[in-house]
């Protein structure tokens, strides 16, 4: 009885030691990957900040109106800092995933290959998002200035409509690119976009039909006389 108990204990201990000896290098590999990842990420962040500062990236972002949406999203840091942080975490996570893959857990098998396979979609989505946000800001700004100069009292509403129209379109494209609820996104976007366009058409048709008529008349040259009659300002600018 005691021999059997002793043999069982020794076998169990030997198996446990064997298991530990088997896992230990993987754990060491994980820790090494994490440490190297941290170092690499820190280097990439420092280098990014230096390069972006040299190229006056923050001023460029300000010019393209990228700082405004960042501020609205509660991010107070300059765009160069934000970008360097994103790169820091991207590099660190890549190394972390390599470490997790090295541990060879059944639950995380092929993790890195799956991530690498999905990476092009993420990059494309990020690019679409960036271009979408930039376009939304640019065209909203242009619409706001044009509407203010035309003395439209609803200038800010016009600018918001332009901004959110482009952002809505962008978000739909990003989600489609990432393959997240593709069918639902396409259906939801089609319904929303169609609804907005229909509402606008109805609004324009009913609300400002006299303005549209005058604009068309002016375009056709019929409103020139009327315009002349209405012109009461003697001031010219050039």
């Amino acid at each position: 009885m005691s021999d059997l108990w002793r043999d069982t204990m020794i076998a169990g201990f030997r198996d446990a030691v064997m298991q530990i000896l088997l896992v230990l290098p993987r754990l060491l590999a994980l820790i090494t990957f994490l440490l190297v990842g941290l170092t690499m990420a820190w280097l990439v962040r420092a280098l990014t900040v230096r390069v972006l500062t040299a190229f006056r990236f923050d001023r460029l972002c300000e010019r393209f109106g990228l700082n405004q949406p960042l501020a609205q999203a509660g991010i107070k840091q300059p765009a160069s800092v934000v970008l360097s942080r994103v790169l820091f975490w991207t590099v660190f996570l890549l190394f972390a995933f390599m470490g997790v893959d090295a541990v060879n857990l059944p639950a995380t098998a092929n993790l890195i290959s799956q991530i690498v396979g999905f990476l092009p979609n993420v990059l494309a989505a990020a690019l679409v998002l960036l271009l979408g946000v930039l376009s939304a800001n640019f065209f909203a700004e242009a619409a706001l200035i044009a509407a203010v100069n035309a003395q439209l009292q609803e200038a800010r509403i016009v600018a918001s409509l332009v901004r959110w129209g482009i952002l809505l379109f962008t978000f739909a494209m990003v989600l489609t690119q990432l393959g997240i609820a593709k069918e639902i996104v396409i259906s939801a976007f089609s319904i929303t976009f169609g609804g907005v366009v229909f509402s606008l058409a109805l609004g324009v048709g009913l609300g400002i039909r006299h303005l549209m008529r005058e604009a068309i008349e002016r375009r056709l040259g019929r409103g020139k006389e009327k315009e002349k009659e209405e012109k009461i300002d003697e001031l010219t600018h050039l």
């Binding site: 700004e141 706001l144 003395q151 009292q153 200038a155 300002d233 001031l235």
Partner: peptide
């Protein structure tokens, strides 16, 4: 000679609207 009126109210209304709506741009 100046033959007609000058519409000052419309110009003042323009600057008022600018102050109201373009402030975020002018801040830059």
């Amino acid at each position: 000679p100046l033959t007609g009126p000058v519409n000052i109210a419309r110009m003042v209304s323009g600057v008022r609207q600018g102050v109201r709506d373009l402030l975020p741009l002018w801040e830059v």
